[in-house]
Design a protein around this nucleic acid. Sequence first.
DNA 1: TGCCTGATGTTCT
DNA 2: GAACATCAGGCAC
Length: 189
Amino acid sequence: MDSWKLLESDSVTAAKRLLGCELTSTIGGQTVRGRIVETEAYDQTDAASHSSHGRTSRTEVMFGPAGHLYVYFTYGMYYCCNVVVGQEGYGSAVLIRAIEPLEGEAVMSLRRRGLTGVQLTNGPAKTCQALAVDKQLNGHMLREQPLILKVCDPLLESEIVQTVRVGITKAADTPWRFYIRGNKYVSRS
DNA sequence: TGCCTGATGTTCT
DNA sequence: GAACATCAGGCAC
């Protein structure tokens, strides 16, 4: 039994549980590490989710086993990354909206056109840029190099804030966004 | 400080 | 052909 089992729970539970976990990227030979501080839950019953219209070649990964990475391209210029959660065959995932840099800030800054501070990772596309995640990593298993998810101890319920999601038009009232209270890397509080 | 808009391409209808 | 889980820069206030 290992802590990854938690990813097989529903997306809301997993979204809360992923807060505080660490992501380590060694993409491009540079080590970059960050702590997840903001997430959003999506599943196939949810109109805002890519999986709500069923399995397609794009969303295939979301229906696969938990613990893989679902990367999608958006607005013509950006990637966003999700952790696939839930049971195999059920389309659910958790969007990583923001991380707090722990290691390799200089590398992140280079990848982010020289920006620094909270600008490095306070948004889903920014986080992907900082970690050098792109379409190549779609379907990647997060226990393996070059991108590894380390599951940490759960946060206290009192440290987690739950709100409505950001930047979507469908099912915008569903309160499935979670972030760590008071963390400055949260994209919007 | 805060709204508005342009850049840009993949996916689905 | 339109929608889109975005970002950053510019301009008005």
